[in-house]
């Protein structure tokens, strides 16, 4: 009853919630449910044939494997970058802090062509790697670099606020009990940061799995070698094989949903651990 009367204080409950639900259904829920209906209409055998084809299986391995590696690299360097931005003062710090969000703001196609130009045979970086026998552009390594680029801000921006809110008392207590700086870091600070770090990792991973624009230019798209899963959907669509595209989309959607709920649980854990709201 208490909530009922409380809801009556403000006007606009029916209007705002009604509008939210209608708009959400029209733009997101109904179109997404089309995937389920389409997949259901073509039968399980067809579904299984499509999603277990060798080229598609190779694309899962590539997409998930590289997204995991990119997530780990971003977790390490993102944590380091967040630490440096919060703890130290150096020239150009504000500039770097602002530019960390570049991957959020820079359109993926621009990222894609820029990275390809940098790492191709004649590119600024590629020309030094080529003589060493390291090929980046048009190989899985190139995909990894694109995934690192797009995932970095997720880790920095989830860890940074937690680091800023950290109490000095914890570290002082740890030091006064005889811990050295490294012990204080990995026994006191890291456990506090862990939920946020995992959230950042999961966000970067989720983004990387579905990423298309920044990867497609540098990937080379060689069957069984450097084809990502979203590209497999595109290839089917270009052949007007809508049921095939839908079958692969179902696999990706299920994984996205699992990740989405995992991320929500991680964020709730972060909030509980640190007393922050989101």
């Amino acid at each position: 009853m208490a909530t009922l009367s409380k809801n009556k204080i403000f006007p606009g409950f029916n209007l705002s919630l009604g509008y939210t639900l209608v708009y959400l259904s029209l733009i997101v829920l109904i179109p997404i449910s089309a995937v389920a209906f389409k997949a259901g209409s073509s039968g399980f055998d067809h579904f299984w044939d499509v999603v277990s084809a060798p080229r598609v299986v190779a694309s899962y391995q590539l997409s998930f494997g590289l997204s995991l590696i990119a997530g780990f690299i971003n977790a390490i360097f993102g944590l380091m970058l967040a630490w440096v931005l919060v703890r130290y003062n150096f020239l150009g710090k504000k500039f770097i802090d602002a530019l960390v969000d570049l991957p959020f703001a820079l359109p993926t196609a621009v990222t894609g062509i820029a990275l390809t130009a940098l790492y191709s045979k004649n590119g600024w970086i590629g020309q030094y790697l080529e003589p060493l026998g390291i090929k980046v552009a048009f190989t899985p390594l190139g995909i990894l670099i694109a995934l690192i680029f797009i995932g970095l801000p997720f880790v920095v921006r989830t860890v940074q606020p937690i680091l800023e809110d950290l109490e000095t008392e914890l570290e002082e207590a740890s030091a006064s009990l005889g811990a050295n700086r490294w012990q204080t870091f990995h026994l006191v600070i890291l456990p506090i940061l862990l939920p946020a770090l995992l959230t950042g990792f999961a966000l970067a991973f989720a983004r990387a799995v579905g990423e298309y624009g920044s990867v497609i230019f540098i990937a080379g798209n060689i069957p069984l070698v450097s084809e990502i899963t979203p590209l497999m959907i595109i290839t089917r669509l270009e052949q007007y094989d809508y049921s095939g595209a839908t079958a692969i989309a179902v696999v990706m959607l299920v994984i996205s949903l699992i990740l989405l709920f995992a991320i929500n649980a991680l964020q709730a854990w972060t909030a509980k651990r640190t007393g922050r709201s989101r």
Binding site: I30, P31, I32, A34, V35, K38, T108, A206, V209, G210, E211, Y212, G213, T229, P230, I233, I234, L237, Y242, A245, T246, A249, M252, L253, S256, L257, L259, L260, I263
Partner: peptide
């Protein structure tokens, strides 16, 4: 945010 952009396009093609 958690749906691949490619799938975002696909769902409207299906509708």
């Amino acid at each position: 945010f958690s749906v691949s952009p490619v799938i975002a396009g696909l769902i409207y093609v299906l509708v």
